[in-house]
């Protein structure tokens, strides 16, 4: 479809929408007039002293004016001479929407692609005691998608009187999202040594069964399993991947706790309960004062000793 054809289609769609909107608001207006004409229902609640008819219906009149203005505006928009401009602007609007959605969709597709690849790699066979080829990039992909696509909505500038509060709440949601991805990743990582150890011991049992052997003492199998598990955990803990994750977890926890404290403080302040921040200031002053007093006491004792001797 050419751009000209697309524009004309959009113009037709817009024209029909304008007609429908016009009809709707005309019906609302008519129905209001009908309602006021109802003989059986008394809508006149009486005028109070000094109150004019205009005062009594001032809310309604304000609304009535707005409806009239809006229907006039719709009429102007639907006038033939404005059709072309409307069609063009609506096309631009549609394109802008398509563009925005397109970007997000492309990123989402990329994330899905990465996720599928990650799962494929994660399910590949890896040897026991080997965490070098560990793939847990699904979590990193999710974090990338989150920071590139969703985080920006939480960072939309906040306005108005409760601006600061809204900003802190958004920040809390943001930081907790990131922190919980690290927690999820940690649980995933901890599941790997179990997976590897179980696989090793199952293979051993299988090999024994194929030889017609059965281990009479389950404790022996358990001891072997726990030894393999210990080895696998040790390798995991020593790996760079684990240390990196630990660092990410610590940093995200610190960020999350800090902003959580800020939000909690807002409510504590509301109830006039001293916040940790306020108490920490008192504790610092107490710490400094105590230190000074101890130092001065020590000096005084030395002076007294000197004077005494």
């Amino acid at each position: 479809m050419t751009d000209a054809n697309r524009g004309s289609e959009v113009a037709k769609l817009f024209e029909s929408w304008m007609d429908t909107a016009n009809k709707f608001w005309r019906d609302v207006e008519n129905s209001r007039e009908e309602t006021l004409k109802w003989g059986d229902v008394n809508l006149d609640f009486g005028l109070k002293d000094g109150e004019t008819d205009d005062d009594k219906y001032r809310t309604y009149r304000s609304w009535e004016t707005s409806v009239k203005n809006f229907t006039t505006f719709l009429k102007i928009l639907s006038a033939p001479e404005n059709q072309q401009a409307m069609a063009e602007s609506s096309t631009s609007f549609t394109e802008a929407l398509n563009q925005a959605a397109g970007d997000s969709f492309e990123n989402l597709l990329e994330f899905q692609g990465n996720l599928i690849q990650s799962f494929a790699r994660a399910s590949e066979y890896t040897n026991s005691y080997n965490f070098d080829n560990l793939d847990h990039s699904a979590f990193q992909s999710f974090r990338d998608l989150y920071t590139s696509e969703w985080q920006k909505y939480l960072h939309i500038p906040k306005i108005g009187l409760p601006r600061e509060f809204h900003e802190q709440v958004s920040d809390l949601v943001d930081k907790s999202n990131i922190f919980y991805t690290y927690i999820a990743e940690l649980f995933y990582l901890f599941s790997l040594p179990f997976e590897k150890s179980n696989y090793s011991i199952q293979q051993k049992i299988n090999a024994m069964l194929e030889q017609g052997e059965v281990e009479n003492d389950p404790t022996k199998l358990y001891n072997e399993w726990i030894k393999i598990l210990e080895g696998n955990f040790m390798q995991l803990m020593k790996s760079q991947e684990y240390t990196n994750l630990l660092n990410g977890l610590i940093r995200s926890l610190a960020d999350y706790k800090a902003v959580k404290n800020d939000v909690t403080n807002i409510f504590l302040e509301e109830y006039q309960i001293p916040t940790n921040k306020e108490m920490d200031e008192v504790y610092r002053e107490l710490y400094v004062t105590k230190k000074k007093v101890k130092e001065l006491t020590r000096r005084l004792e030395k002076l007294e000793e000197k004077l005494g001797s």
Binding site: T243, L253, A254
Partner: peptide, 20 residues
């Protein structure tokens, strides 16, 4: 020691500020 590896390569000291 694992403690040495972790403490050297992470920002564990942040937890001091985080929890007081």
């Amino acid at each position: 020691g694992l403690l040495n590896i972790w403490m050297k390569n992470t920002d564990a000291e942040l937890l001091g500020d985080t929890y007081a």
